[in-house]
């Protein structure tokens, strides 16, 4: 295995091994250093503008007056509906594949299909949303069209996460339920679902934290860049069909302007986006902890 001249010169091999250990450590640090630089840079540029009026104001042509109210609310509305749509579809698919799916061609197709969907670029989902939801379903550039597109985009991740949660249910609980005479659906509803739900929710929240920063699909379906109202301002029932903008869109818009004033605002909006991401991940971790404690009982 260690053929060649290498096995003869032990000191040289040991030195070489030491040098390469350094190379591996250095390589690992590259990613971490870039991450640190990015965060420091964004905080340094953006923190100055961060105050309550930035959060509570609408976008403006004048950088000093501009804020992210419509973008933040748009993001929350889209993500809210994405959650409502992702839970039944993601959990339903996972339950089907784990509990019902027979070993046949259709199941194979569904499984291969899900892993292929995971690799489709997000902008292609944008084209799908534009054609099917915006035009064919005539939902226009609405919150609902955005949420449906995002739901499909994160579907592969929500399904994988939900399946893992279902597989974590102890087989003994399931068998106990069958032994008591429960049917399959009764077992799923009363034993598997309550046990797996926190895990599934954790996975869905984590996959939504993927969606929240997605920009390209929202640009494709025509999320607006300048919106001076929040969804639901003409009546809450109207909100799903209202046009919207979103945080990443606002960041993109401000970043691509040449004036330094707007680029600083982009950094401030990025801070808000990262905080929202942090909150979502925190929620997921809390849920997971509760889940684990419950599992130990």
């Amino acid at each position: 295995m260690l053929a060649g001249s290498t096995h003869t010169n032990l000191p040289a091999r040991k030195i070489k091994a030491k040098i390469y250990a350094g190379v591996f450590i250095f390589s690992t640090l590259v990613g971490i250093v870039v991450l640190a630089t990015l965060l420091v840079r964004i905080l340094a540029t953006g923190l100055g503008n961060l105050d309550w009026s930035f959060i509570s104001s609408y976008p403006s042509r004048i950088p000093e007056r501009a804020g992210i109210l419509s973008a933040l609310m748009g993001t929350l509305w889209v993500m809210g509906f994405t959650f409502l749509l992702s839970v039944p579809i993601g959990v339903g698919t996972a339950l089907y594949l784990e509990q019902y799916a027979p070993k046949n061609r259709l199941t194979d197709i569904v499984q291969t299909n899900i892993s292929n969907l995971a690799g489709v670029p997000s902008i292609v989902y944008g084209i799908l949303g534009l054609t099917i939801f915006v035009r064919w379903f005539a939902l226009d550039r609405s919150v609902l069209a955005g949420a449906m597109t995002m739901t499909l985009l994160i579907l592969p991740i929500t399904i994988v996460a939900s399946r893992e949660a279902i597989r974590a249910v102890p087989r003994s609980l399931e068998e106990a339920s069958y032994a008591l005479g429960a049917t399959k659906w009764q077992t799923i509803r009363s034993v598997i679902m309550p046990y797996a739900m926190p895990g599934m929710l954790t996975g869905i929240i984590l996959s939504m934290s993927r969606a929240i920063g997605e920009t390209a699909p929202l640009i494709m379906i025509g999320a607006l860049t300048y919106v001076a109202f929040v969804p639901g301002s003409a009546g809450l029932a109207q909100a799903p069909l209202d046009p919207f903008t979103a945080l990443p869109i606002q960041i993109f818009n401000w970043s691509s302007r040449p004036q330094a004033g707007f680029q600083d605002l982009a950094a401030t909006a990025i801070i808000v986006l990262l905080v929202v991401l942090l909150v979502m991940n925190g929620m997921a971790v809390l849920l997971r902890d509760r889940f684990q404690r419950k599992a130990q009982d």
């Binding site: 964004i42 960041i251 990025i270």
Partner: peptide, 11 residues
């Protein structure tokens, strides 16, 4: 690092 939105990397 993997979870940072790409628009942030673009900026």
């Amino acid at each position: 690092l993997a979870g940072i939105p790409t628009v942030v990397y673009g900026f």
